[in-house]
Amino acid sequence: MRLATVSENCRSFASKTGMVSCWSDPISGSSGQPLGVVTLYRGQAGEPNELDMGRLRYASHLSAIAIERKRIEEQMQHQASYDNLTGLPNRRLFRDRLHEEIGKAARNGESLALLFIDLDRFKEVNDTMGHEIGDLLLVEAAQRIRAGIRETDTVARLGGDEFIAILPRVDDMSHLGRVAQNIVNAMTKPFSLDKHTVYVSTSIGIAAYPFDTDTADA
């Protein structure tokens, strides 16, 4: 495209570098979806030659391969570390973060706590209303748990109806009871799921480092 029709960023770059013309080639994915643009700048006016255009098209092709490969790698990494249903960290990522947080707490002389959260009557919901409603319940429950703790805390789904939260830098252990009670209260409110109203309750266990144990496995 001509310099006069490119974006403001392109014009700014051309002005700063002394370029007077540019041409672009779209970066397209394997299924034709747009991924970006490769731009060729020239220091002189006039049409680019065939060699320049060949290089531009080749750069566009290589860019498409690199972008799609990166996206696939990121997708695989996400699937390996996050629960597909709720989007929360899975058991694997939870263990990594727990070891990391215990290491930080040990170095800094701090405390941390775990909340083990189990939904009561979840099996009954699955058996009577079906797994689709059960999945919707898990998604909504995950959101309520997430809303009940700090942004810096980690909530993970261990599997089934079991969730766990890592609360680092806990200065006042008496505060944990209030946090747990807030989550319990949030779970007692009715769940509106696809024209169904579901009621469940929640059981929460609490463990603290280093008061209850000093290892991640314990």
Score class of each variant (00 low, 15 high):
R91S: 14
R91N: 11
R91P: 07
R91E: 10
R92D: 07
L93N: 11
L93H: 14
L93V: 07
R95I: 02
R95K: 12
R95H: 12
R95Q: 11
R95W: 11
D96Y: 08
R97K: 15
R97H: 12
H99M: 13
H99Q: 15
H99I: 15
E100M: 13
E101M: 06
K104S: 03
A105Q: 05
A105E: 02
A106L: 09
A106T: 11
A106D: 06
R107V: 00
N108M: 04
N108G: 04
N108Y: 11
G109P: 02
G109C: 05
E110G: 05
S111Q: 14
L112S: 06
L112T: 05
L115I: 02
F116Y: 15
F116E: 08
I117L: 09
I117F: 03
D118G: 01
L119E: 08
L119P: 01
D120H: 06
R121C: 01
F122P: 00
F122S: 00
F122N: 01
K123I: 04
E124H: 15
E124F: 11
E124N: 11
V125Q: 02
D127G: 01
D127W: 14
T128Y: 10
M129D: 03
M129I: 00
G130W: 07
G130C: 05
G130Q: 10
G130K: 09
G130Y: 07
H131C: 02
H131F: 07
E132V: 14
E132K: 14
E132R: 14
E132M: 05
G134C: 03
D135F: 01
D135T: 01
D135R: 07
D135P: 00
L136D: 06
L137W: 13
L137K: 08
L137T: 06
L138H: 04
L138W: 05
V139D: 01
V139W: 02
E140K: 13
E140P: 00
A141C: 04
A142K: 07
Q143F: 04
Q143M: 09
R144S: 05
R144Q: 10
R144D: 08
R146N: 13
R146E: 13
A147N: 13
G148S: 15
G148T: 11
G148P: 08
G148W: 13
E151Y: 08
E151H: 12
E151W: 07
D153C: 04
D153A: 03
T154M: 07
V155M: 13
A156D: 10
A156P: 12
R157C: 00
R157L: 00
R157D: 03
L158H: 05
L158P: 05
L158N: 02
G159F: 08
G159Y: 10
G160I: 04
G160E: 07
D161A: 13
D161L: 04
D161T: 03
E162F: 14
E162H: 09
F163K: 05
I164T: 15
I166L: 15
I166N: 14
L167D: 05
L167K: 08
L167R: 08
P168R: 13
R169W: 10
R169Q: 15
R169D: 15
R169C: 12
V170E: 12
